[in-house]
């Protein structure tokens, strides 16, 4: 009985996953190679969007520095792949090291009971410090094993090879399959996670931390748990990203990228997983299109979008749409869920 209940709850997730699989097998036949390579980068960013959608939308953790884990995953993968001479272990090491890093940072924040806003600022600071640290590592003395960190210019990342077969490197069109597959797996995993007991407790903490605590849950441990899992997913995105682009530079830790991640989740909507993913694709193509002209600056447009959504569509697109459709279907007001734990510290 319980099994079917979970399945029913996961139905939307599975439908989107199915659509994703269809797209994965159709796209390479329809689209050109250049578009496919571009799409791989967009997919990597979508995985990042998913990770923040999970920890902010469901965990209620305001993490402004999700790109830190994304970039760290990419850097660790690159360093490890150069040193190991193959990507199989490098991918695992990237995920594990990034999660461990998140666990340490998270320990200090959650067990120090750092509240929402401070948490955002601290995670952002971690990101910016990584940025300025890695930019300074241009000398030959900054290396990990055989791999130079390369400072400002970054490092070129070795492409993924077949598991335990270091001679068969994947071509860009294959990396597209890997990326899309990883996105779908992460999406289904996150969709499943939020239906589990663990996921429900996380949502309860987001809604009312004190109440969850009074019910006997150690909220710090749950927050740390979902934060660490989110960082691991972000690291997967990072690995895909440096494969799509071919290199990794400190710019990944920049303020612009950190803001972009937040904007995906704000625009897509907190409390859904698919919303931020779609928003990340939409904004990826919007910013690419804006890159072709010089009249409107990217920063300017993103700033306006962010202010517009915060002031006028604070729930984001997907939840607003769901509410609207629900209201039309039932012909009355829908259940309104409080989606964000705002005002807890005001």
């Amino acid at each position: 009985m319980k099994q079917t209940g979970t399945l029913r709850e996961m139905r939307p997730t599975l439908i989107f996953a199915f659509l994703g699989i269809v797209f994965m097998f159709l796209a390479p036949h329809v689209l050109q190679l250049f578009t496919i390579i571009n799409l791989t980068t967009a997919i990597a960013l979508a995985v990042l969007a998913l990770s923040l959608a999970l920890i902010w939308g469901y965990g209620g953790i305001l993490c402004f520095g999700q790109v830190a884990f994304f970039g760290l995953g990419a850097y660790v993968y690159t360093m490890a792949a150069i040193n190991f001479g193959g990507s199989t272990w490098a991918v695992l090491v990237a995920i594990i090291v990034t999660s461990a890093f998140a666990a340490v940072v998270g320990y200090f924040m959650f067990y120090g009971r750092v509240s929402d806003v401070y948490l955002g600022v601290i995670t952002l600071t971690v990101t910016l410090i990584l940025y300025s640290l890695l930019r300074r590592t241009s000398g030959p003395e900054y290396k990990i094993g055989k791999a130079l960190l390369g400072g400002f210019n970054g490092v070129s990342s070795p492409p993924i090879n077949l598991p335990w077969d270091t001679r068969t490197l994947l071509f860009p069109e294959h990396i597209f399959y890997v990326a899309m597959g990883a996105l779908i797996i992460c999406f289904v995993f996150a969709g499943w996670l939020v239906t589990t007991h663990f996921g429900r407790v996380c949502v309860a903490i987001r809604e009312n931390e004190t109440r969850a605590e009074l019910l006997g849950y150690d909220t710090r441990a749950y927050k740390l748990g979902i934060f660490t899992i989110g960082a691991g997913i972000a690291a997967v995105g990072g690995v895909l990203f440096c494969n799509g682009v071919g290199r990794i530079t400190p710019d990944v830790f920049g303020l612009y990228n950190a803001a972009l991640t937040i904007i995906w989740v704000i625009v897509g909507g907190r409390g859904t997983l698919i919303g931020p993913i779609i928003a990340s694709f939409a904004l990826f193509y919007l910013t690419s299109a804006l890159g072709g002209q010089s009249l409107l600056n990217n920063n300017l447009v993103l700033g306006v979008i962010l202010i517009f959504f915060v002031l006028l569509v604070p729930k984001g697109l997907a939840p607003t749409l769901i509410d609207w459709v629900g209201a039309r279907r039932k012909g009355g007001p829908t259940r309104t869920r409080r989606r964000n734990p705002r005002g807890t510290d005001a």
């Binding site: 305001l62 929402d116 806003v117 955002g120 600022v121 303020l255 612009y256 803001a259 937040i262 704000i266 409107l296 600056n297 990217n298 920063n299 300017l300 447009v301 993103l302 700033g303 306006v304 979008i305 962010l306 202010i307 915060v310 002031l311 604070p314 964000n340 705002r342 005002g343 510290d345 005001a346």
Partner: peptide
């Protein structure tokens, strides 16, 4: 901008971040 958001710390934070991007974009232009 700010006065619409008093008491909503998270939203103020996000709105000022939007402002930050806006100002960078404006000065760059």
């Amino acid at each position: 901008l700010i006065r619409w958001l008093y008491g909503r710390m998270v939203d103020t934070l996000l709105a000022t971040w939007g402002l930050s991007l806006l100002l960078i974009g404006l000065v760059t232009s």
